[in-house]
Amino acid sequence: MAALWKHERVALLRERGGLRSLGFWLLRRALALDVYTLFALPLRDAGPAFLPGCTLLRLVSEDDLANCPGSLLKQIGPHTGIGVDKLIAQGGRIYALVEDGAVRSQTRIDVGVAHTDTPCPLTLEVGPHNAFLSFLYTHPSSRRGGWAKKLLLATASSMAQEGLHVCLSHVQATNLRSVNTFFSLGWRHAGWLLASRSGRYLGTLCAHPTLRVTR
């Protein structure tokens, strides 16, 4: 197991940002410090998403929820954190890519205010016309198939059409593949969020001006 881990770590060093990721990993080991990269994406309407072989499911309103097949809600629910009904009631949104009745990838979007347990329980205020991507999940059988990238592109365009301006998110700085995915899709670095490995929030550095984080 240790040899496999070492091989994977060396392989990651060959990827974009690999050396920086290793530095954050060393900080985590030496100082018990968890660093999260903050991202921001200015939203723009790229037109209707063209997604061959699949469709974009939007759960934004109570009507969307009522018209969604129960089989899809059953797949989506466990990966929302609080359940689909409660999320929609609180003003949150779900976007998912569906193929042949299966949810391949899904994301939870909170508008105005987001509550997250990562890296510890926090409230993130982003402004009434902005959003926070709280959770991104791809079914294990669909990983490495580009589903998350397709979903993020389609979601960004849909949010712009709905009148939102900016979407923010955070990713653990050692999660190199996720960090590179965000950069490749046009998300911009928007600061750092710091926490102890024991789960204590330490603050933000150079954070996006619309973001306010409280415990």
Rank of each mutant, 00 (worst) to 15 (best):
A2G: 11
L4P: 03
H7T: 14
H7W: 13
H7Q: 14
E8W: 14
E8S: 15
L13Q: 01
R14V: 10
E15S: 15
G17R: 00
L19S: 10
R20E: 04
L22S: 02
G23Y: 13
G23H: 13
F24M: 05
A32P: 13
A32G: 15
L33M: 15
V35C: 00
T37Y: 00
D45M: 07
G47C: 02
G47D: 01
A49W: 02
A49K: 02
L51E: 05
L51Y: 05
P52R: 08
G53T: 11
C54K: 13
T55Q: 13
R58F: 08
L65N: 01
L65R: 06
L65P: 01
A66R: 14
N67Y: 11
G70R: 11
S71E: 14
L72A: 09
K74W: 09
I76V: 15
P78N: 07
T80C: 04
G81P: 02
I82M: 10
I82Y: 08
I88D: 00
G92S: 09
R93N: 08
R93H: 10
Y95Q: 07
E99I: 06
V103W: 03
V103L: 06
R104L: 09
Q106I: 08
R108W: 09
I109A: 01
D110E: 15
V111T: 11
V111Q: 11
G112Y: 06
V113C: 10
V113D: 06
T116Y: 07
D117H: 13
D117A: 14
D117M: 12
D117S: 14
D117Y: 12
P119H: 02
P119C: 01
L124Y: 04
L124T: 07
L124W: 06
E125R: 12
E125K: 11
G127Y: 03
F132R: 05
S134N: 15
F135R: 12
L136H: 06
L136W: 08
L136K: 06
H139M: 11
S141G: 10
S141Q: 12
S142T: 09
G146E: 06
W147L: 10
K150D: 07
L151C: 04
L152E: 04
T155N: 03
T155Q: 04
T155V: 05
T155C: 03
S157F: 02
M159C: 13
L164Q: 04
H165R: 15
V166K: 10
L168Y: 09
S169K: 08
V171H: 00
Q172P: 09
Q172D: 12
Q172A: 13
S178D: 01
F182V: 01
G186M: 03
G186P: 04
H189Y: 15
H189R: 15
G191K: 00
W192M: 03
S198P: 11
L202H: 00
T204N: 06
A207S: 12
P209Y: 04
R212I: 09
R212L: 12
T214G: 12
R215M: 07
